[in-house]
Design a binder for these strands. Structure first.
Lengths: 335, 335
DNA sequence: CTGTTAGCGCATTCAT
DNA sequence: ATGAATGCGCTAACAG
């Protein structure tokens, strides 16, 4: 029963009693007025009977394109990037494309050699949350490139898909101000990328004109334990104790909550804590985190759309996706 | 400045003053005693100067193999699977292989058509945590297959890489018994796969002979909110209230902790809660979760090794990886 | 030791 | 409307 070898277009041609070229035409979908309807139908039936699938290697070789995009992410174990991938993969599939992942070992640093690692041949690259200069190697390679969440680029640079993080921070700050908080510490990521620089900058700007505000900053790595330590520093620093910790991510907020509890401070009544990203973690901790929801899937989807446009030579307008504050139990009126 | 077209092995050959076949031999690493050291060096230098990279489509077409594996996972947004991927990708890269992901849209159900979707051509498949019969289509396709975390298969079936989940559960149960707990509710996943069936079975078995034990079970979906509801049911059920909730995963444990707090029960002093998986979530919640650490990366790595062995015709012994209980703050002596 | 040759499966151009 | 011929870039068998 085993027809062990995979059928080729020649096998289909033989079965349908036509030439291989005709098979290619019909299955390629471009036979209008070139092949008779009857012949086309015969070809399709033969292909179905043999369970024919075109050999992608051969197709790629012939076409010089692979219909595959490379998605470069700092770390797949972060839910945000997994969701970006999901969005990109969805749009890719809708367009007959594939996506292969390249989890950059250098984190957000220069991506050394995506091609040695992601072994598939690639038509283009989508880079998520990388430092602006981290992709020189790729840009030089002449590969079409789209950058996600890396800030508005030069008009003649690669297309970008950004999140309105500044607006998100603004919403958080106003939320905290509205609750009466005036002594606020920003628990900031120590990662030097656009998304975090703009957050710090926006916090400063929004708080600058407000009377009676005391803003301080603690930086730490993007993990629970460093955040806990940063929060301990923030809460035991000399001067008035902050009534709110504005964190650059839900993971940091979780660490901050641990610190608060260890110091005997009740969240939210004695200390408000806000997150960012709105990962599933925001609902897993208690109290649930006030956070900013990022449309991660949509970032991936728009990134893939931008790349597809780029590949077809269509113009690619820059794109900024809105984000929304989700107020939950970790923030409350200042004591 | 733009040498727009990518250099081919012919370009390298011309530059080095040798034939294309020689280039192939040298760069393919199999020239021992077939090409002189001087020639080989010239080829390597020419390749370096031109920044030559072999065309993978052509190589695949010629070889009939793609050096690419497909990893089928239920959901990439779960940290466990992201880590399995990381492990598999690492071993793959060490062996010049690539990994493409197929996040099965049907969750753990039958994987309909991995090949239409994952567009790369594939040498073999690694399936993680799928129902045993969910891969009939792949098995029939005659593709080499390795199954992860799906229980010991038939001796003549596909190779398997399993976790010692039964042992993990045993460790949890003994930990709870050692703390004096006798009224225990198992917050169980409602997903019908080997890994969860064996957990439920092991809980029953381990508790069966112990005098004075009252075991109950609440099933729920693998998410925080369903788990919270299940825990509420468990804690407000008629009869003696459980002093410990043994959860099938950290996510469920997080939900259980929320329920406890809402009901005014302090974790761990009035209620112990144990998790499973030891995700980063276990350290993000407060108190930190007693959990069972799963070597997820190692599962992926061993899975890839098994597939590589399978592809080279080497025998593949079944493999079971040990797991370890990590006792933390969410469990304490029974009140 | 090295070069020549053939062919992987497909899309395409040119005849018919 | 269809078939024959070509070549994408590579590796492997064989010739020198």
């Amino acid at each position: 029963m085993a027809e062990s070898a995979r059928p080729t277009s020649r096998d289909v041609a033989r079965q349908a009693g036509v030439s291989q070229a005709t098979v290619s035409l019909v299955l390629g979908g471009k036979w209008r007025g070139r092949v008779s309807e009857r012949t086309a139908e015969a070809v399709r039936q033969a292909a179905g009977e043999l369970d024919y699938r075109p050999n992608l290697a051969a197709r790629s070789l012939r076409l010089g394109r692979t219909r595959t995009a490379l998605l470069v992410v700092p770390a797949l174990t972060h839910e945000y990037f997994a969701r970006v991938y999901a969005g990109a993969a969805r749009v890719a599939e809708e367009n007959g494309f594939g996506v292969v992942l390249y989890p950059s070992p250098e984190g957000i640093g220069p991506a050394r050699d995506p091609f040695g690692s992601a072994r598939a041949a690639i038509d283009g690259v989508i880079a998520s949350s990388m430092a602006a200069d981290a992709l020189a190697g790729i840009g030089d390679g002449g590969l079409p490139l789209v950058m996600l969440d890396s800030g508005p680029g030069a008009p003649d640079g690669p297309p970008t898909v950004d999140l309105a993080v500044a607006d998100g921070i603004r919403q958080v700050v106003r939320h905290l101000l509205g609750l009466g908080h005036r002594t606020i510490t920003h628990i900031a990521s120590d990662v030097d990328t656009w998304t975090f620089r703009i957050r710090a900058q926006t916090v400063r700007e929004e708080l600058a004109g407000v009377p009676g505000v005391l803003l301080r900053t603690e930086r730490c790595a993007l993990d629970v334990e460093p955040a806990r330590q940063a929060a301990v520093r923030a809460l035991s620093a000399p001067g008035p104790r902050p009534t709110a910790l504005l964190c650059d991510g839900d993971v940091l907020a979780a660490g901050a909550c641990k610190a608060a509890r260890a110091l005997g401070l009740a969240v939210p009544h004695e200390l408000s804590v806000s997150g960012f990203d709105d990962l599933s973690l925001a609902l897993a901790v208690d109290p649930e985190l006030t956070s900013v929801r990022l449309p991660a899937e949509e970032v991936g989807a728009q990134g893939m759309r931008a790349l597809l446009a780029l590949l077809s030579g269509r113009p690619v307008p820059p794109c900024e996706l809105p984000v929304t504050l989700v107020a939950r139990g970790s923030t409350a009126p200042a004591p």
